[in-house]
């Protein structure tokens, strides 16, 4: 039955090459920790992606309970943590995942750097990767404000003041982020929520897709 459905679709859109390409492509031995244990350094990229998946899923589930509004944001997070079964764990996954993903990204970046894997022809993929790093830092910064507790509020206050120091466009940049020229409040929270939940993830997906497509086109860099 499943085979028939598959054949019906395959006959029309020829999907076999798509998954055959992913499933059957040969992976070189030198990235396989089962052959040389030192190859575990090649796992950092995959683990980064795994944490990103955890972040996306836990984030999706957290928005079921979270309200981006200064009256209710803290209360809803408190409710989630204290009243909802496993709410504490899911928020914990998102909270710790945010830190772990930075660690993994750093390790992955260092692996690529010290192996010189960014050299021709992989310059573009390195730049895409660094942009992903920036996006991740942006996600960390915007996500920090959302629970609307003291450390969120004051850390954001500092971040916005730093944005204000940027020459020429500083004031406009701060207002763009905060939604108001003085108050860090209701409008700031909704903006940070939108950036954290829609804008940056959209950019992240695009960059991740580019990252993976480039890896497939160029292959993994050879052994040293």
């Amino acid at each position: 039955m499943l085979q028939k459905i598959y054949d019906w679709i395959d006959e029309r859109v020829d999907i076999t090459p798509i998954w055959r390409d992913i499933a059957d492509h040969e992976v070189p031995e030198h990235v396989n920790p089962a052959h040389h244990f030192s190859a575990f350094v090649y796992c950092f990229g995959g683990l980064t992606f795994f944490v990103v998946v955890i972040q996306i899923l836990s984030g999706m589930f957290l928005t079921m309970y979270y309200v981006p509004d200064i009256e209710n944001a803290w209360k809803s997070v408190y409710y989630l943590q204290t009243e909802v079964a496993h709410g504490q764990i899911v928020r914990g996954m998102h909270h710790w995942g945010a830190s772990v993903v930075i660690v993994m990204l750093l390790l992955h970046t260092l692996r690529v750097f010290f192996q010189g894997a960014y050299k021709k022809p992989r310059e573009l993929n390195w730049m895409v990767g660094v942009l992903i790093f920036f996006i991740m830092l942006g996600l960390g910064f915007t996500g920090y404000l959302l629970p609307w507790d003291n450390k969120a509020y004051f850390a954001t206050q500092v971040g916005l003041q730093m944005a204000e120091q940027v020459p020429i466009i500083g004031d406009q940049l701060k207002i763009l982020l905060a939604g108001d020229d003085e108050i860090v409040g209701a409008q700031t929270l909704t903006r940070f929520f939108a950036i954290h939940v829609f804008f940056l993830p959209a950019a992240l997906f695009a960059l991740l897709a580019a990252h993976f497509i480039l890896i497939r086109r160029q292959g993994i860099s050879g052994p040293l």
Binding site: I70, Q81, G92, F141, Y144, W148, D149, N150, Y153
Partner: peptide, 24 residues
Amino acid sequence: HPSPLGGLADPTNAAFIPLPDWYF
């Protein structure tokens, strides 16, 4: 380690020393 949640944001709380996340 349960995820920490501080007190509700209080802009008049002068005793609080702001500190960013560790990676900043």
